[in-house]
Design a protein around this nucleic acid. Structure first.
Lengths: 220, 220
DNA sequence: CATTGTGAACTCATTCACAGCG
DNA sequence: CGCTGTGAATGAGTTCACAATG
């Protein structure tokens, strides 16, 4: 069923987006959707939708389309979001707080179950989302006790590498880095960056070089 | 000097990253850097660095490398970040607040000079960063008065399209959308998305499908 | 018979390899 | 001699176009 081979990273990104549109379609009462429809909603080419899905199996019915609910189930399984993931957030400023109380994350199974900071005025207090703030010195123990798999870095840039090292010593499987810094990690650890200063630089560039045509971008 | 032709979007992303490493190199007292060096720091191929720069001119000295300060100036000019950009933030929750007080943005010339919300308990108050919170109904006027060019959407997903429409009516040039929703805009408006639920889905996928090799990613 | 699934064609991006030059 | 700049080679990702089919 599921086919192997090299799967473009962009495909995974799009699967995530297809999934969200499918949720909306279901909410709006649709039972079936064609690749054309879905592609239009996600602002991509319809062959792209079919090819992306084709990497993982045959989920459609020729002449009809895809079952809106069925396809959600398939994509959840592919993305492995049909389970919970435990997250620990380091750096409980506004950004960290935003993630802790983010309703959507919890609903999707991304559980922010630990909050770390080095500010003694915060430690021991209850952060937004109802999680107690733990001294970052105790990160390793907490990661172990709470079985945290994904570390989220929402510290200032200057602390990012230090915090990353703490997470690495605690053997998390992946890091999500919100600081505008490249962090260096061993091969064994997956890192994703979310750097809005880079996005703003891109906007700056594109506004300045006024590209006349289609400007909505598909980068996430 | 500056060469034209199609420039990959990824090139612009990398220029932004090169720039940040150059700042660090300068801070550490380096005067010159080779493409090899810089590439290593940014975790890319050295030919990539040279090609990226090559789209815009010849900034290096053969046999020597690139002047650390000079190259920063060139990249700033290319990215058009050698000027200020006025930003308006809509949705003053934790995420919006994080941006408003984000020191780095201001230093880089991205000035968050307006804050909008529809919550009457917030309107009129001073947000973090010292900006007064304006009723979102008055967005259009404020955008005009303050000459805001980039609208930032930090509202819940449910409000994202409405707020986007307000920004569009106010004729901002670009939107930076932090909500996990595709927003539809006319061709004339540039949109960049920052969607961390997508990033988490990617982490989930990659952890589940344990890719044995190099896992640090270059997507921003 | 409308729509999927997919090889082949094409477009875009990265890397190689070396000529050109300070 | 060492490193840049770049055409040529390779590789990756997207789109086309149509045979397969429920």
């Amino acid at each position: 069923m599921a086919k192997s081979g090299k799967i473009p990273k962009a495909t995974i990104t799009r699967l995530s987006i297809y999934y969200r549109q499918l949720e909306l379609l279901e909410f709006d009462g649709y039972r079936m959707v064609s690749s054309e429809n879905l592609a239009w909603l996600c602002q991509v080419n319809s062959a792209q939708v079919r090819k992306d899905l084709g990497y993982f199996g045959e989920f459609g019915v020729r002449g009809v389309g895809y079952d809106v609910i069925d396809l959600q189930v398939h994509i959840k399984r592919i993305l492995a979001v049909n389970r919970d993931w435990n997250l620990g957030i380091a750096g409980i400023g506004n950004l960290g707080s935003a993630l802790l109380q983010h309703q959507n994350l919890w609903e999707r199974g991304f559980r922010c179950i630990a909050a770390f900071d080095n500010d003694s005025s915060k430690i021991g207090k209850t952060a937004l989302g109802g999680v107690r703030i733990i001294d970052i010195k105790d990160l390793k123990q907490a990661v172990k006790d709470l079985n945290i798999e994904i570390g989220v870095i929402t510290t200032p840039a200057s602390a990012a590498q230090t915090v990353a090292d703490l997470f690495l010593k605690a053997k998390v499987s992946a890091l999500l880095n919100f600081s505008p810094t490249r962090i260096s990690v061993p091969e064994s650890c997956l890192v994703e960056h979310i750097d809005f200063t880079v996005k703003l630089d891109m906007i700056s560039y594109e506004l300045h070089h006024e590209i006349g045509t289609k400007k909505t971008t598909n980068s996430f």
